[in-house]
């Protein structure tokens, strides 16, 4: 049973993508890593569901493996 939503949830997905991208713009790699790390933890807590988190990690691992 999947709980993770992979349908498009933003009205304007480009805005969301852009927002994250701009947060990183101009940052050194180390600062970018730190930002992403904090972001992952904040969003994971917001979701607050271990099953969703597990599925998200699995999907991320799968896609990272394809790159």
């Amino acid at each position: 049973m999947t709980k993770l939503s992979t349908s498009s949830n933003f009205v304007k997905p480009d805005d969301a993508f852009r927002m994250i991208l701009e947060a990183h713009r101009g940052l050194e790699d180390s600062a970018s890593h730190a930002l992403d790390t904090a972001l992952v933890l904040i969003l994971a807590n917001h979701i607050g569901d271990l099953d969703v988190l597990r599925e998200a990690i699995a999907l991320a691992e799968q896609s990272a493996g394809k790159q």
């Binding site: 730190a34 790390t37 904090a38 933890l41």
Partner: peptide
């Protein structure tokens, strides 16, 4: 990366309950 995660938690913990 484990060190970064810990750093992030310690920094966030000043202001957030979850961290």
């Amino acid at each position: 990366q484990e060190a970064r995660m810990r750093q992030a938690i310690l920094a966030l913990a000043k202001d957030t309950e979850f961290a």
